[in-house]
Write a protein that binds this DNA or RNA. Structure first.
Length: 470
DNA sequence: TAAGATGATTCGGG
DNA sequence: CCCGAATCATCTTA
């Protein structure tokens, strides 16, 4: 290696200048006055030349020459000179490289591979990978398809990594190579001085080389994992719109609980299930609870941000819900008439007079009183606000009011049909779905408590509950 | 292809 | 941990 080159250089220095070998055993300065010196000089120059050119020759030739040199009468002298040179150059060599502290980068890589479940315990790697994947996904996902995909890819990487690593570690490529080099050095030690320290150093170099290969392996493994991960995350980020039915279900719920659009955990689950059912026949994907949460989060914020934009949608769903509720009521009528035990709308009787109230505010207050037992302490907009918003945004107050009236009358007629359960009363009496009644002056829902135990009118009693506000 | 819609993510607050 | 808000990235639509 470079050391050899250095020695060669030193030897070259001997042949050219000769000063560096002053005092060498039996060797005289090349510029001595003795006639005999010329002959020796010639000799040495010859030998050195042979040595220098030995690498240019074929193996056989070199072998032969090597033997010749080995047996040369000047060999011991030259050898000792080389020893001396080496002694001197050795210092600089030694100074040039030592230190071998645990590489911080290597440690980082190791840690990462361990964390990613690549270099961890062999068999349990799957779970580690899953954990890593779960961590990567924020722990809130159950998209098992992508998980398994990710895991299998990770396993692949892991396998490649281990087989490669084995080549360097367990199979002992490193040791093999080391012994080979040591043999070579032993062989060479006959023609040139090789100290144990030097061998040690050589071994060190080899080990470093191998560990740098290992490092590269780890590095590229890490890279692969990172790429895989980013792809995985990208895939997660890649969104697909929900199916129309799913959106409809969510919207129905949202607008029928507009005063408090915070579905409980169970409600979310139920919605997710419902949406998944309708979705699955279309696309085949499922909607998770967290997706429902996302949806409601987005919906709330966007609705609040621009109520006008959603007014039409709100009206649509209000009407739709009212119609659905009408069916439900009709069914309830039948049920109550037949006194069917399957309908849980048993005891709770709503007084008609309570439904005669026109003001949304008083209605809400009343409902609140009814269900919470407290006097309306929160800040609700009056019905004027509600139509005002429609007016200003639709540019047609009459139309907006008309819709409200239509729904209202529809609801009113329904109200008189039958005494209602709490759920129906909210669906009808508290039919705030087409107005932002739930929003207080600050634009927040938090104060607008709706009657507890709200039941989605589209489903009948006891289906999706959303009561507790958060 | 730009603009708008929409699902997902991130961040700070309670 | 949930929420609102801001933002990102993709999908849809005109």
């Amino acid at each position: 290696m470079d050391e050899q080159a250095r020695i060669m250089q030193a030897l070259g220095g001997v042949s050219l200048a000769g000063h560096s070998v002053q005092g060498g055993m039996g060797l005289q300065p090349p510029h001595g006055h003795d006639g005999t010196d010329d002959g020796r000089k010639q000799d040495i120059g010859d030998i050195l030349h042979q040595i220098m050119t030995i690498t240019d020759q074929s193996l056989d030739e070199a072998q032969a020459k090597k033997h010749g040199l080995n047996c040369h009468r000047m060999k011991p002298a030259l050898f000792s000179v080389l020893c001396e040179i080496k002694e001197k150059t050795g210092l600089s060599i030694r100074g040039s490289q030592e230190e071998d502290p645990p590489d911080p980068q290597l440690m980082r890589l190791d840690n990462m591979l361990l964390a990613e479940g690549v270099s961890g315990p062999e068999k349990g790697g799957g779970s580690a990978a899953a954990a890593a994947a779960a961590a990567a996904s924020g722990g809130a996902s159950d998209n098992s398809i992508e998980h398994s995909d990710y895991r299998s890819k990770l396993t692949q990487i892991r396998q490649i990594y281990h087989t490669e690593l084995e080549k360097y570690e367990q199979v002992g490529a490193c040791n093999e190579f080391t012994t080979h080099v040591m043999n070579l050095l032993r062989e060479q030690s006959r023609t040139r001085p090789i100290s144990p320290k030097e061998i040690e150093r050589m071994v060190g170099i080899i080990h470093r080389k191998f560990s740098s290969i290992q490092m590269q392996l780890k590095q590229s493994t890490c890279e692969a994992v990172m790429i895989l991960r980013s792809r995985f995350l990208d895939a997660r980020r890649k969104r697909r719109n929900f199916s129309k039915q799913a959106t409809e279900i969510l919207n129905e719920y949202f607008y029928s609980h507009l005063s408090n659009p915070y579905p409980s955990e169970e409600a979310k689950e139920e919605l997710a299930k419902k949406c998944s059912i309708t979705v699955s026949q279309g696309v085949g994907s499922t909607i998770t609870v967290s997706q429902v949460s996302n949806w409601f989060g987005n919906k709330r914020i966007r609705y609040k941000k621009n109520i006008g934009k959603f007014q039409e949608e709100a009206n649509l769903y209000a009407a739709k819900t009212a119609v659905t509720a009408a069916h439900a009521v009709a069914a309830a009528v039948q049920n109550s008439q037949t006194n069917s035990p399957t309908t849980p709308n048993s005891g709770f009787q709503m007084k008609d007079e309570e439904f005669q109230l026109d003001s949304a505010e008083s209605k809400n207050t009343l409902l609140t009183n009814m269900f919470t037992g407290s006097s309306g302490s929160f800040n609700l907009p009056n019905s004027g606000d509600m139509f005002l918003s429609m007016q200003s945004l639709n540019g047609d107050s009459y139309q907006g009011a008309q819709v409200g009236v239509n729904v209202q009358s529809q609801v009113d007629t329904l109200r008189h049909v039958i005494s209602q359960t709490a759920g129906y009363s909210e669906a009808l009496g508290g039919n705030t779905m087409y107005s932002p009644n739930g929003l207080n002056a600050n634009g927040g829902w938090h104060d607008a408590m709706t009657p507890s135990s709200v039941i989605s009118p589209t489903e009948g009693p006891g289906s999706v509950h959303s009561d507790t506000s958060n």
